[in-house]
Every structure is written in C-alpha cells, then in structure tokens.
C-alpha cells in the first residue's frame, strides 16, 4: 500500500464526516455519500474511497507511443494504454468526454488489478505503460501502485495528463514515472477557468516540478480557433516553455476537432498550426511539432545544431530514424529524450 497524502479529515467536530480531498487544486470538500468533482473519489461514512481503483474502462496494448504524443521517448514502440472514467477538469473541447465526463455507475469497466495490468503488458511485450485518455490524476492510487510494480518488472511508466494536481502527491507519483506529456492548454488563467474549469498556475507548477524531477517532459498545446490561435498567445506560451522548461522541451501544437461543447467552432487550419510552429521555433524552442494532422515537416525531428533530419515521421509511423545512441548522426549533438 502507498503512504502518500491525498486527503484530510476536517477537524471541526460539526464537520467530522466531511472529507477534503487534497489530490488536486480543486480541494473538494466532500459530504458523506457524495463524490468530488472528478466523480470517482467519494466519501463513504467519512472515508475517502476511490471508485475506479482496479476498474479501467479502457485498456489497449497496441497504441503507438507517438499517439500520446511522445516523440522523444522510445520512438516506434507500442505502449499499453489504460484509463478509468472521470476527470477533475471539464474541458468544453474534450475529445474523450464520453469517458472523462461519465459517472462510474453509467460506465463499463474491466476488473484489472495493478498486478494483472503489469502481467498483461509483459505478456504483450510492451516496453511501457501509458496512463492516458482521461486524466490519470484522478485514478492516482491505481496509477501509483501499478507504476511501482511496472518499474520492478522493467516496464516504463508514462503519464498523459493536464497536470492539474497538487505538488505533494505529484512529487510522490513522479518517483515512479519515466515520461509525461503534459497539456499546457492556455497561457491565460481566464481561459483555463472558462473552458476547463481549472486554473493556470497549478499546471505551470506541475510542469516545472516534473521537469525538475528529471523525467522526460513533452508539452501539448491544442490550438482552438478563436480561443488561443492568436500569434501573441502562441508567442507567450512558447516563451514560457523556453524560460521555464528549457529550449530542449518538445512542444506539440495539436489540431482541434469540434467536439463536446465546442462543436460550433471550426477545426484548426493547417496554416495556423504551421504559423504556431514557426513562432515557437523563432522563440528558441528546438523541437516543435504539429499533431492530429498530417504535416510534411511538422512531425519530423531535426538536429537543433546542424539541422540534419534525424527522425522522419508520417502520422504515427517512423519512416526513418538516424539517431545514433541518442545523438545526431552527423554532428554528434546529444538529443533530448529516452531513446532506449
């Protein structure tokens, strides 16, 4: 069992049966019989319980790692992906809202303990496990226990997350994580509040803490027309990434598809994505990618030193990999990433 701190009992006697979940910045005060905003952490008789521990709604052993997206982590490998229902954010643009905004009682799940999950990944020769699709923050205990076992079994752990978590449980979890793709959805607190029911600061903090912990960090920014597609917003975001996470941090600009509560907005145009990539490169970022759309150059990795094409991609497929022991085959520059 894990000994991390996620929740505290309120000390005032009249509120003794209430619980405050301290996992994420929402800090939900949960009445007996109720759940937090994530729908999966509930108060039963004054005890905080996780409904989804060992009950993933989605398991898929054959995702390409590039789909997460992770372009600097074991390229060309398959990653065993796992998710439960629920999310602590309620993004109006959510692509997976059918599971992220679902109640556990309305959903279907597998019975799969952490031990079983690691066993399945081993059986299928998956070098890594991804906690993804919804936000792994809300199935924290399940991720933690599985990641610990996976590491013992030589399997790497990857988080695909919005990074909306408090620092203490985040640091504890990162001890067993090898890589993360973290969304930086907006560089505006107002947009975080209006579109995602979250705030900007905790996400920025999670990014900085993850980077400082030494794991591989890649950042995704979904470009939504009319919300965050202005050159100035992209410049500001790129500048923040460079200043706080370093120029070697890969940044993915993803194309928006009209879904959930933002169906009235158009999809992101390829021109906007190209423009975003150019701005981020001009701001000094070395690895800038375009996602959810085919792009001739926007999915390739180039050496930041000699500009040699190192990894050529088409969609999730690797067409060419010229890296030699994680270094540029032409000039020898070390390329940020986990390559084996």
């Amino acid at each position: 069992m894990i000994g991390v701190v996620e929740a505290s009992r309120l000390t005032e006697p009249e509120r003794e049966m209430e619980i405050q979940c301290e996992l994420c910045p929402k800090m939900c005060v949960i009445q007996p019989g109720q759940s937090g905003e994530c729908r999966v952490r509930i108060n039963i008789d004054g005890v905080l319980r996780t409904v989804v521990y060992g009950y993933p709604c989605s398991l898929y052993p054959y995702d390409p790692v590039e789909k997460k997206p992770l372009f600097h982590f074991l390229p060309g490998t398959r990653i065993f992906s796992v998710a439960t229902v629920g999310c602590n954010l309620h993004c109006k643009n959510c692509q997976n809202w059918e599971i992220s905004q679902a109640n556990p009682e309305e959903s279907q799940a597998y019975v799969c303990s952490p031990e079983k999950l690691v066993e399945l990944a081993k059986e299928r020769n998956c070098p890594s496990l991804a906690y993804t699709y919804t936000d792994p923050i809300i199935f924290y205990e399940y991720v933690y226990d599985t990641a610990k076992l996976a590491r013992q079994a030589g399997i790497r752990n990857v988080l695909v997350t919005a990074g909306y978590i408090n620092e203490q449980p985040w640091k504890k979890l990162l001890e067993y994580v090898d890589a993360a793709n973290i969304d930086l959805k907006f560089i505006s607190d107002d947009l975080y509040r209006r579109i995602c029911s979250g705030t900007l600061k905790p996400v920025q903090n999670a990014l900085v803490v993850a980077k400082a912990s030494g794991i591989l960090v890649e950042v995704t920014n979904l470009i939504i027309p009319t919300l965050n597609d202005k050159p100035e917003q992209i410049r500001q975001l790129s500048h923040w990434v460079k200043a706080n996470l370093g120029s070697e941090t890969p940044l993915h600009f993803s194309s928006f598809t009209p879904r959930y509560k933002l169906r009235h907005l158009p999809p992101t145009s390829p021109q906007t994505l190209d423009m975003a990539r150019e701005i981020a490169i001009s701001e000094g970022l070395n690895y800038v990618y375009i996602g959810n759309i085919l792009s001739k150059e926007g999915q390739n990795t180039y050496c930041p030193s000699c500009k040699e094409l190192l990894i050529e991609r088409s969609g999730y497929t690797i067409l060419k990999n010229q890296l030699k022991n994680g270094c540029c085959s032409r000039c020898g520059k070390e390329i940020y990433g986990v390559w084996r």
Binding site: I2, G3, V4, V5, E6, A7, S8, R9, T11, I19, C21, E22, L23, R41, I42, I44, V47, L48, R49, T50, V51, V52, Y53, G54, Y55, S58, L59, Y60, P61, Y62, K67, K68, A83, V85, Q95, N96, I99, N103, P104, E105, E106, S107, Q108, A109, Y110, V111, C112, K116, L120, T132, Y133, Y140, E141, V160, N292
Partner: peptide, 29 residues
Amino acid sequence: KFVRAVRLGKYPGSLRPLRDISKQNKWSG
C-alpha cells in the same frame, strides 16, 4: 489527520471481460 483514498470493494457500473482489450478504441491521447 491525513487519510488516503481506499479502494471501493465493488464497481458501481457494469463489468466486461478482459478478452476485449485487443479491440481498437476511439480515444485520443
């Protein structure tokens, strides 16, 4: 006084067999 979230004994939704897992899903990320 800190407490950790404890696993719930029974899933409130419905369950499905593990043999389904090789089916491609539609989720992004």
